[in-house]
Write a protein that binds this DNA or RNA. Sequence first.
DNA 1: AGGCCCTTTGCATGCGATTGCAATGCCGAC
DNA 2: GTCGGCATTGCAATCGCATGCAAAGGGCCT
Lengths: 360, 360
Amino acid sequence: MSRAPVRQGRRPVNAVDVAELAGVSQSAVSRTFTPGASVAPATREKVEKAAKKLGYRPNALARSLITRRSRIIAVVMAYLDNQFYPGVLEALSGKLQALDYQVLLFTSPDGSLSEPMFEQVMRYQVDAVVLASATLSSALARECRKAGVPVLLFNRTTDDPDVSSVTGSNERGGRLIAAFLAAGRHKRPAYLAGIEISSTNRDREAGFRAGLEAAGLPEPLRAVGNYTLTGAEAATRELLSLRKRPDAIFCANDHMAIACLDVARHEFGLRVPDDLSIIGFDDTGPAQWRSYRLTTFSQPLHPMVDSTVEAVGELIEQPYQKARRTVIGGDLVVRASARVPRQGVIDVNGRRVWRSSGEA
Amino acid sequence: MSRAPVRQGRRPVNAVDVAELAGVSQSAVSRTFTPGASVAPATREKVEKAAKKLGYRPNALARSLITRRSRIIAVVMAYLDNQFYPGVLEALSGKLQALDYQVLLFTSPDGSLSEPMFEQVMRYQVDAVVLASATLSSALARECRKAGVPVLLFNRTTDDPDVSSVTGSNERGGRLIAAFLAAGRHKRPAYLAGIEISSTNRDREAGFRAGLEAAGLPEPLRAVGNYTLTGAEAATRELLSLRKRPDAIFCANDHMAIACLDVARHEFGLRVPDDLSIIGFDDTGPAQWRSYRLTTFSQPLHPMVDSTVEAVGELIEQPYQKARRTVIGGDLVVRASARVPRQGVIDVNGRRVWRSSGEA
DNA sequence: AGGCCCTTTGCATGCGATTGCAATGCCGAC
DNA sequence: GTCGGCATTGCAATCGCATGCAAAGGGCCT
């Protein structure tokens, strides 16, 4: 067996090499690899043959230098242990790839886009930045605008009115959950909060409180889980150790709801939903697992991602248009972790969903 | 409030602009942004002030063009719903970022590196390719070598002796699990297979069979789950519907073990581990959740990722060295999904771990 | 004061492509 | 036969930065 031919430290082949072999100019080579450029079929054929022979591939970096378009999108993520985000990442990456965009991934331990990380993002001339699960200081938002790089917030918003975002219906979800609990004759609701300053937490809680008040229920008991498993466990213990414990806990996301449910069942020996109702948010994979069967408000992955990709495309074409804030609808998916009201549960595409009487 | 200044479609600032403002040459600007270059402190200061004023950032793409190093690593992934991989991705990305490498993410629906995707990878001049959860045809491996791009297989191997890889101890893990089941007096073992052609599945099964034989147990019953949730559910139903059902199932990964456990408990009403022992592989997050408490063989994330990063670094420095195949050790972590032998369970850093008598 | 050496600086070139412009060639029409 | 027009093609400039080389500057020693 002979070893495969190896280009040991040699200069990689470029358009000039191909041009020489094909007996044409370097421009011709460039044009055969540029969709829509003017090349005679015969020329194109010669070039393609030479290119294949030499193993030539256009250098995307050099191209970006001159076109000022890298076709790279920066995606900033954290909390990949919350199943919601791997799903987002997979969908986002797949859809961007289909449009011939590449994803440059940045992960941030604490969920914030740090200054040095931001600097790297900018150096790579990305065409846009998608921030999922990362807080963006308004200083950095301004930096981006200054540099002409569109930014899109995924699953969070900010006060800055010039920053576009795509989110689920956090406020409405919280409100609906309150109504659902009220309809299920719960008396002592609790809220298990995520990261206090996050917009998702703020909006879900605001909706929940508004809904409780509208239903004539008391203010919720409250503990903070910071969107982490251990945080949620501790918060659950706190709530369930109360003299008068809650009969329902709305957890600000599924990730925490799972921890909450496990603690309730296995540490406190409670039956769910007989002794305690637990509701989540997101409808991630594990929410559907047989051991949990969470009742939860869904954030539909694909619509959210589709909308994100669309918005990114528009922002790249027209960087300075008005910010667009897209809110994607969701449903209160009824499974087995919360007591079910007598009325309002309907069937939608094989899923059980709850609609309050006030809604269509 | 005045709007932030916006560089509407204007040329971004480059090193020449900075040089002019600072009253130095463009080379000086380049040097102050190149670690280790020779610049007088006074010059550096002038340049830095000018750069800050103009909001200058070096163009990494232009730099790559000349240095022939993009500092971009392509990472190819699939199956992000198996929690093992998001963890890998997060760790890998974090560690590469710390070394000033960027991650260009490619996701592949079916886990294989397709031809057009490969083409994109190559066009972006990545310094190396890490394939996790993707099969690499040996044709493509040869292409990479030809182009001088190092490839590293994560959690899989290939027959090609020239391709480096980092894996867990699949064979040993399978063998140890067999010994563990034998020590626990199980009589009818079963194997729930992953993707048949994957190296992980092959090695785990080979080890398992060897171990069973060594222990004098019969060949395992067998069904295929293809590393998917629904596949594993179906496979479990198949196994548990057998006239003489198994008393232990080794699932080729945790992802499937969870589906297996749920089906056993909730569809067949079996008590685990009293009626049936279930063992997984990977020790991912959900394996530790209270509802599952899987006994499983661990693939230690950080050692595996560290080794990967190290190997990538070496391959970039010395692309044509001999392939290195690293195998990272793991432990049989004892939790509650399998009957525990009387002997051999010891405590390691607060984790219960099983050691066969044949081992150190 | 002169010479030597080391540090710092600028000049100029090149990395691999895209693209406006002008030149070329070929075609049919008159 | 000549010319207009269109499709192709090549030339050359350009994108933003790195870097070899030579020149300049400064400090120190004799």
